[in-house]
């Protein structure tokens, strides 16, 4: 899949895990998902599950730098790298 379609899939997923009392926002690619209030810190782990189920990405052997799960741009980079 292209980065654009990955982007679309990721935003659709983020919409399902965003905090229910936070309105959907037009998030910049480099904006921090937790600091922006869109998701809570535990939801980062849901992103890991999403990457595993949707893109077959496993971090079990290498681990993942948590900092790479906090912006749309860095998550897309992870998909490019591991997907």
């Amino acid at each position: 899949m292209s980065r654009a379609s990955n982007h679309q899939a990721l935003l659709a997923f983020l919409d399902t895990i965003r905090r229910p009392d936070v309105a959907a926002i037009d998030l910049g690619e480099h904006e921090n998902l937790v600091d922006s209030g869109l998701i809570d810190s535990l939801a980062v782990l849901q992103i890991v599950l999403f990457l595993e189920t949707e893109f077959g990405i496993s971090f079990a052997a290498t681990g993942v730098d948590p900092g790479r799960l906090y912006t749309v741009s860095s998550i897309l980079d992870l998909i490019d790298e591991f997907g």
Partner: peptide, 10 residues
């Protein structure tokens, strides 16, 4: 659909 229902009220 909590996310949309609550978000829509803001």
């Amino acid at each position: 659909d909590l996310a949309n229902m609550l978000g829509a009220g803001r």
